[in-house]
Computed example of a mutant assay.
Amino acid sequence: MGEQHQMVVRNDGFVWVEIPHPSRDTMAELGRSFPFHELNLDDCLSKIQIPKIDRYPDHVFIILHFPVVEHGSVVRSGQLAVFMGAGYLATVHQDELKPVSDIFPACAAGDPKQRQELMGRPAGYLFHSPVDALVDDMLEMVKKVRGNISDIEETVFDERLSAAKEVSYLRRQTMALRRMAIDLSATLQEFGTRDIQRFSGDEDLVPYFDDVKDHLERAVRALEEARETVEIFKDTDFMHGVDRSNKILAVLTIIFTLSMPATILSSFYGMNTDLPSVQGIPFGTLAVVVAASLSAAACMFGYFRRLKWI
């Protein structure tokens, strides 16, 4: 690999290869350096792979999904592909996964003691370090979602206001985070059950991955609660919207109903026909029509009030 691009860092025979924006050329070069299956190399170039673990005699191939924030607030899935074997770790990702991008330079150009702390231990420990940091980032996003839910609660339950846009945004965030947290928890549970011993050396890495799984379980529980709350908010905002629409329609209907007497009377006397009782009186017909219309409207208004429609 091209070390001039700081793509590879070595420590006491251990190799970490980091490919932040893979291309076919870089993946082909990786395939020439390590015995990786070509289908796994192709998977690294795709953004739509589902989380999985492929096992081989000398290594495992893992795909994990973590939340990535784009356009300042929209959460979507970012893929991290990992090849892990005895004495090496290769991480491939197309999106900017900050913890991975921070840890690799720290190993490549940082304090030798820090490099030894991360890379002088089994491959499973180095794999745990960025995964743990990425899960912590996910927890922070979950906390932010819960804070946003609390922020719009008063708006949602104020029948005069509409919060449809805010509720839709939170619903999308919650669904995306929940889906990733559940898939990530299942994949790491499978890794901890079947593969962790292969890459632990003489160390017991189970407590480290148990801590990650505990964080994920907390995230899933928080997201389940957030999903239920957002659904309540959605139903509440919908009911308030329906109620506001009904009130508007009721007012418009009442206005139309009260104007019906005037419409009917004016249609009878709209051809300049004088009423017999007011012949010779200026504007007599107009006065009779207006008076009759107002009387009919007043009677209808009183009747509606009695029925408590107004």
Rank of each mutant, 00 (worst) to 15 (best):
F157T: 03
D204K: 07
E166I: 02
R194S: 10
I182L: 05
L188C: 08
V206Q: 11
E231M: 12
R227S: 11
L205T: 03
E228N: 13
R198K: 11
E154F: 00
F209S: 08
S185P: 00
A176H: 04
V220E: 15
T193A: 09
T174I: 06
A164T: 11
D158P: 06
K213M: 10
R160D: 07
D214L: 10
A222V: 05
S185E: 09
L184M: 01
V156W: 01
L223I: 06
G192Y: 00
E225Y: 11
E190P: 01
D204L: 08
Y208T: 00
I182A: 02
S168V: 02
A164H: 09
Q189A: 08
V206L: 10
K213A: 08
L188V: 06
V220M: 12
V167I: 14
L216Q: 14
L188Y: 07
L170F: 10
S200I: 05
K165T: 15
I196T: 04
L205H: 02
V156R: 04
K165R: 15
L205W: 01
Q173R: 09
E166P: 07
A176D: 08
P207G: 07
E166L: 07
D195H: 13
V230H: 06
V167E: 11
R179G: 01
A181I: 03
D195I: 05
R172S: 10
S162P: 06
S168Q: 09
D195F: 13
G192F: 03
M175L: 15
D204V: 05
Q189V: 05
E153D: 12
V212R: 06
R179W: 01
I182K: 01
D214V: 14
P207F: 11
R198F: 14
D204C: 02
E231G: 04
V230D: 04
Y208V: 06
R178S: 08
Q189F: 03
E228C: 08
G201Y: 07
V206D: 09
R194M: 08
D211Y: 00
R160G: 10
A222H: 12
L184R: 02
P207R: 09
R171N: 12
E190A: 14
E224K: 11
L184F: 07
E217N: 14
S185Y: 00
E228F: 14
R221G: 14
Y169Q: 11
V206I: 07
L188P: 03
T187N: 00
Y169D: 12
G192E: 08
R194K: 13
R178M: 06
V212L: 04
Q197P: 00
D158V: 00
L170Y: 11
F191N: 02
A226Y: 13
Y169W: 03
V220S: 10
F191Q: 04
E154T: 09
K213E: 10
E231F: 02
E166K: 11
L188F: 08
G201T: 12
E224R: 02
L216E: 03
L216N: 05
Q197I: 04
S200T: 08
S168E: 11
E224N: 15
R218N: 15
E153F: 00
M180F: 07
E153R: 03
A222T: 13
H215Y: 15
R160A: 05
V212E: 03
T187C: 09
L177Y: 01
Q173W: 01
E159C: 00
G201P: 07
E159G: 13
T193R: 13
D211E: 09
A176Y: 06
D202V: 08
F191M: 12
K213T: 01
V206K: 14
F199V: 07
